[in-house]
Amino acid sequence: MDDLDDAVRRVAAGDAAAFRRIVAATSATLVRLGARITGSQSEAEDVVQEAYVKAFQAISGGRFEQRAKVATWLRQIVTHGAIDALRGRARRPVPSETVDDVGFGVEGSADARVALAELDDLLRELPPEQRAAVVLQSVEGHAVSEIAVIMGCSEGAVEQRLVRARATLRERLGS
């Protein structure tokens, strides 16, 4: 049995401490995903923390049916959380000092800090769903079918988002 599946069973049976195994095995990947979508390490950590709380409540409340793999399910929650965070940012513009901070406080190499800021700048004009689709495909390396599962939409919808995103990026880079 998968170690994560075993941890899920234990949490569902009331062993809350077993949830730490799930966090330890997935937090690096999920924070990286969240940071790549939002362009901000601190925002990604908030999104991922909230995702873990939701996941814990679902598992301990018996609402996680294990039809999807735990890791994929967590990716779904984080992706939706990151999209919501981007929408919230669009509704309430980030104060300039926070914009300056985007990319700072990043754990990892200096190159990673610079690269995250560059990625954020490159994708800045894309709507949240298109931005997430581009990150999942071209940065995280997922196939369209996997992205459809993670984003909870059809493969056609994913392809449409990717085509539109690429058109925007082409226009921007070509000008």
């Binding site: 924070v31 990286r32 940071a35 923390q49 754990e107 190159d111 990673a112 990625l119």
Partner: peptide, 15 residues
């Protein structure tokens, strides 16, 4: 950018 951001990880004490 995928390669360059591969070393991103949560800050200490995140878990």
């Amino acid at each position: 950018l995928a390669t360059d951001t591969a070393s991103l990880r949560p800050r200490g004490g995140f878990d």
